[in-house]
Design a protein around this nucleic acid. Structure first.
Lengths: 336, 336
DNA sequence: CTGAAAGCGCTTACAG
DNA sequence: CTGAAAGCGCTTACAG
C-alpha cells in the first residue's frame, strides 16, 4: 500500500500519483510538482510486480546464447543489454552449453518468468521447443536459422560476403593456393560457414583441393591440429582461412612451432573478430562478425513482434574484413 | 483469471490449485492428481507477477560485474547463474564498465526492478550507493572490499596465499631474481594484488628491486610494454609474476619477440587462470582465482542475508597455483 | 484536471 | 482436506 502513502502525504488520489509517475500528460503542473516532491522525500519506488501485473507485461527479455565462455558472445550480450536498458527493459540471460535439453529448460524457465520476448542466439535450435514457446504467446527471434527463416524472425549474417571480401584480399596478394580450416559438420554454424566459403570460392572461379580443407573443432586446439595437417601437405597452401578466430589462433601457434613465419611464409585469416584476435602475435586479420548489429536487429524485431503479427525480415547483415598483420604477398609472387 | 479456469475445470477452488502448484503437503492425492492433470492439459503457467506480488518477492537476483568483455567474469557469471537457476531464481546482470556513475545506475535499476538481492562483483564500489541500496531494503554482497568488510557481506580472496604458492614454486626452481608486472594503483584490485605480492615476498624473506616492478594496464598491451621494460633491465629478473593473466599473455608475446625463450630463459606466472591462459603458447602457469567459489559464496550469503540480519563472514577463499608450461629451473642454477 | 473504484492473478489466514 | 474471501500494490476506464 505504498502508493497510497504517497497519495495521502501529497493529498491526492493514488490515481494521480500513478499518473505523475507515468508522465500522463493532462496533469496540473502544480499537482505534478507536489507529487514528485513527495515521491522524492519518501524515496518511493513503485512495486514492479504490481505494476506489471496490471499492465500484463514484465518488461523483461530473455537472451539465450550457447556458451558464455565463448568469446564470441560477450559483445553480443553487451550490446543487447545496453539497448534493452535504454528502454527500461531488463534482460535475463542463460546459456545452453550447446545442449538441446538445456535449451528446452532455458526456454521453459523464461516462459515461466513471463518474459516479453526471447532472443535465441544459438546456432542449434529445436523447432519443437520454439513452437511451444510461441504457442504460449512469447515472441522469439532467432539467429542464422535459414531453415526456419520464413516462420520465425531470424537475423541473418551473410557469411559468403565475408569470405568473398577475404578472398579478394588474398587474391590481390597473389594467393591462389588457399586452404580452409573447418568445423564439425554436425554443428549448424560450422556447416554454414564451410558452404559459405565454398560459395565464395566458386564466385571467384577458384577451386580448393580437398586435402586443403582440414577439420578442426571450432576451438584453439582443433585449429592447431588442423594447421599441422595442412602444413604437412605437399604442396601446401600459401594462405589459410579458418571458420572462426579460435581455430585461427591455434593455427597461428602451430605455424609458429613449425617455424613457418606468418605472414611471410603463410597468410592467415580468421572469422568473427573476437577480442583475442587482436591480442595474439601478430594480430590476426579476420572477418568481423557484426554482432552488435545482430543484437540491435534482434532487439528491434522482438519489440516489433510484440506489436504486430507479421514476421519481420531484412537483408542479411554484412561481415567485413579487418586487415591486421597475418596476411602478405604470396611467397611465389615475391620471388618473381 | 487463469488459475480460476484451472480450478473450474478441475472442480476445485483456486486455493486448491495454488496448493497443488506449491506442493502444499496436506492435499488429497486424488485431488492433487486431478489438478495436475488439468494444469498439464491446459498448459497452464502461473502468472509470476501475481505470485510475486502476493509473496512480496521477485525471485530475481541482480549481478553486477565491471566488464563483460573481461574474460575473468564469464565463469563467475556462469556459476552464479547456475546456482540461482537451481533454486528457481533468475538473474539480471549488468556491467559498470568500471564507471562509478554506471554502477549507480545499475544499482538503481535493480532496486526499481525489485530484485531480492544484488551481488556486486566489481572491484570499485561506492559506499554511498551501497548505503542507499541497503536502506531501500535490498541485501547486497561485495567482493574483495576489505574496507567495507565489516559493514557488508564481503567475499574475500586471499591473494597473498596465491602469491606465496607461486613464489614457493619459483624458489624450488632456484629463482631469486623475481620481477612483477603490476597494474594502475588507482584500481582497487591492482593495488591489492601488488601489496599481496609484496607481503608474500616478505613472508619468504625476499626483496625485489624497485626497477623490477613494471607498470602495466591490466590488459595484454600493458603487459607487453611492461615486459619490454623488464627485459631492458640489467641485470634482469629470471622470473616474472604478473598481476593478471591478460598482462602475462602480453609479457609472453614480448618475450617471444625479444627471442627470450619461456620458460628456458625466463619463467612467467600469471594470475586468474582465465581461459586464454591455456590457449597461449606455451600454456601459462598461473594462480587460479577461485571464481566459482566466489560465486557460490556470494549466492549463499545473499540468501542468508535475506533471512537473518547478521553479516555473514568466513575465512578468505584460497587461490591455487596451476602449473603449466611457463616455469622452469632458473638459468644460473642450470649452468651450475 | 482529478478521484472512487474495479480488477490484474495469485496466496493464505480463517473457517469448517 | 478444502473453500470463500481478503488483499498484495498498482493502473485505468469511467464519471464528474
Amino acid at each position: 500500500m505504498d502508493i497510497l502513502k504517497v497519495a495521502r502525504r501529497a493529498r491526492v488520489s493514488t490515481a494521480t500519483v500513478s499518473r505523475a509517475i507515468n508522465r500522463f500528460p493532462g496533469i496540473r503542473p502544480k499537482t505534478l510538482a507536489r507529487v514528485q516532491k513527495t515521491i522524492a522525500e519518501l524515496n518511493y519506488i513503485p512495486n514492479p510486480n504490481a505494476r506489471n501485473l496490471r499492465i500484463g507485461r514484465t518488461r523483461l527479455y530473455g537472451l539465450i546464447v550457447s556458451d558464455v565462455n565463448n568469446p564470441f558472445f560477450p559483445e553480443l550480450i553487451d550490446a543487447f543489454e545496453a539497448l534493452a536498458g535504454a528502454q527500461g527493459i531488463d534482460v535475463i540471460f542463460t546459456h545452453t552449453n550447446y545442449d538441446r535439453e538445456r535449451l528446452r529448460k532455458c526456454m521453459r524457465r523464461m516462459v515461466e518468468r513471463g518474459v516479453d520476448g526471447i532472443a535465441v542466439m544459438t546456432s542449434e535450435v529445436d523447432e519443437e521447443v520454439l513452437q511451444q514457446t510461441v504457442k504460449s504467446g512469447v515472441p522469439i527471434v532467432l539467429m542464422n536459422q535459414q531453415k526456419l527463416a520464413s516462420v520465425y524472425p531470424n537475423v541473418q549474417v551473410d557469411y559468403t560476403a565475408g569470405f568473398r571480401e577475404a578472398l579478394d584480399h588474398l587474391l590481390e596478394f597473389g594467393h591462389r593456393d588457399i586452404g580452409f580450416i573447418t568445423g564439425p559438420q554436425t554443428l549448424n554454424s560450422a556447416r554454414r560457414r564451410q558452404s559459405a566459403f565454398q560459395a565464395a570460392l566458386r564466385a571467384h572461379g577458384l577451386h580448393v583441393r580437398s586435402e586443403w580443407i582440414a577439420l578442426g573443432d571450432m576451438r584453439v586446439e582443433g585449429g592447431h591440429a588442423a594447421m599441422k595437417t595442412l602444413l604437412a601437405c605437399s604442396p601446401r597452401p600459401t594462405a589459410v582461412l579458418a571458420a572462426n578466430d579460435l581455430m585461427a589462433v591455434g593455427a597461428l601457434q602451430a605455424a609458429g612451432e613449425a617455424k613457418i613465419h606468418v605472414p611471410r611464409d603463410l597468410s592467415l585469416i580468421g572469422f568473427d573478430d573476437i577480442p583475442i584476435a587482436n591480442m595474439v602475435h601478430p594480430p590476426l586479420t579476420t572477418i568481423r562478425h557484426p554482432r552488435d548489429e545482430v543484437a540491435a536487429r534482434a532487439f528491434a524485431w522482438l519489440q516489433q513482434t510484440q506489436q504486430h503479427k507479421e514476421t519481420p525480415t531484412a537483408p542479411a547483415l554484412q561481415p567485413h574484413l579487418v586487415i591486421r598483420k597475418t596476411t602478405a604477398v604470396a611467397p611465389e609472387r615475391r620471388k618473381a
